[in-house]
Structures are given as structure tokens and as C-alpha cells.
Computed example of a mutant assay.
Amino acid sequence: MKILTVVSHPRVQSLTFSVADRFTQGLTDAGHETEVLDLHRSGFNPVLWEPDEPESSSERKIYSPEVETEIERMKQHDALAYIFPVWWHSFPAILKGYIDRVWNNGFAYGSHKLHHKKVLWIGMASAPKEHYEKYEYDKMMTHHLNIGIAGFCGVSNSKVEILYDTLDSRPETFDKLLMQAYHLGLFYDNDLKTVAQ
């Protein structure tokens, strides 16, 4: 399977990129192909201007060259993975802008839906799991990403994985997070649930 892995973090020397490296190694070891899109280093502009404003009156309008390039990139892959730090119990603005601009009307929703078989959202959270469960941040994120975004765009096989305690500096915690990331890649095929729960 060909999987597009989109990574969002301003620093290459970050846990987010370490997780992305281990995740993609797991994909490769499982026999998948993957392309990594680094939103920051690619220079992607997350601000939606008029050329990329969704147009509901046409079946498939032509968007800006930058967005058309990313749409074509998505079309070349069977499945998707998004790796990001959890900020304000959501993903970074650059990834929100990517979704706004690229998952656009006539391609991702409306007259056409995404063709991708699966999507996996991997978020790095500084707080412990108990904190997320206490305030139901985990449920909020899961509903938003699996149903509000992926499900709305036709991807029924979607899962959110939150890696907790990312500010814990102990080597054993770091190793555990990287092992989780590796296994998410290695078992990408059989580690996803449908949004219809």
C-alpha cells in the first residue's frame, strides 16, 4: 500500500519527527511504500485565499497551483497518516490550513469523496492519558478527526492515536513512545477501526 505521511512541526529535531521516522520505518518493514510531506520545510502556505475558497456551484473547480499539486500528491496514495503535536487539544494551524485548502470541495467532499482506504492521526500530547480522559479531550479529538473530518470526506477507516506524556524526559518514556510509533507503522493495516462505532 502507498501511504502519504504528513508531518507538522516547526523543528526537525523534535519528538514529532522522531516519531515520524519510527512510524515510517514500521511502514517500510511491513512492506508499504510511503512519502513524507513536511509541511513546514515544503513551504506550504496554510492561509486560504480566494482561489482556494470552496466552490459549491461547480462539480470540480480548478484551485491554486499549490493546492492542485497537493491534490495530485494525495491521489497517488492509497492511505494517509498525519503526525503532529497536540496544541490546544487539536492539531497545529499549518495542518488545519492544509485540510482547509487541500481537502476541498469537489475533491474531498461534495460531488466527490476521498478514495483513501485508511487515515491514521498520530498526536503527541504533553499531558498524561488520565488528564485527557478526565476532561474527555481524547473523545473530543477522536470524534472531530474520525467523524467530522475523515468520515465527512468518505474515509470510514479512521483512527486517532494519542501518544501521551511527551514532556517526560526519562529515556524509557522516550523509547516507549518511539516503539509505539514503530508498531503503528508496522501494523498499519490491522490497527485501524471504522468510524461507525
Rank of each mutant, 00 (worst) to 15 (best):
Y98D: 01
C153Q: 07
F152C: 00
N105I: 07
F91Q: 14
I62M: 13
S18E: 15
T34C: 15
K113F: 04
H144C: 03
T142H: 13
G154C: 04
L15A: 14
A20V: 01
S126H: 05
G148N: 12
A125P: 04
H40A: 12
G154I: 00
D100P: 07
P51Y: 04
S156M: 11
A20T: 04
E133H: 02
L114I: 02
A127D: 09
S90Q: 14
K113V: 06
A150P: 01
G43F: 00
G154F: 02
S56V: 09
V86R: 03
D21C: 10
E66W: 09
H115K: 15
E59S: 14
D138S: 03
A79I: 00
P54E: 11
E136L: 11
K96M: 09
D21N: 09
G97I: 08
H116N: 15
I83E: 07
E133M: 08
V67E: 06
I94S: 12
F107Q: 08
F91M: 15
R101V: 00
A20R: 02
L95S: 06
I149W: 10
K129I: 01
Y63N: 03
N45Q: 01
H77I: 06
E130F: 05
K96T: 06
E59F: 10
H143A: 11
F17V: 05
L39P: 03
Q25M: 15
S111L: 12
V119Q: 04
Y132W: 15
T28I: 02
F152W: 12
T69D: 15
E133R: 09
G148R: 10
K61S: 08
R60C: 12
V36G: 05
P65H: 04
H116A: 14
S111T: 15
D29F: 04
V47P: 01
I94N: 09
E55V: 08
K96G: 09
S111C: 06
T16H: 09
M124C: 13
M124F: 02
G110R: 10
E35L: 14
Y63D: 00
H116G: 13
H115Q: 11
G110W: 03
V67Q: 05
L37K: 11
H32L: 00
A30Q: 04
S90T: 10
Y82E: 07
A93Q: 10
F152N: 05
Q25L: 11
L27R: 04
R101L: 04
K61N: 02
Y132M: 07
A81P: 06
P46R: 01
L80H: 00
I94V: 13
I149V: 10
E50A: 08
K134P: 12
L27Q: 01
E68C: 02
L37D: 02
P54T: 01
N104A: 15
L120I: 03
A108R: 01
K117C: 03
D21S: 14
E72D: 13
K61D: 10
V19E: 12
G31M: 02
S156A: 12
P128W: 03
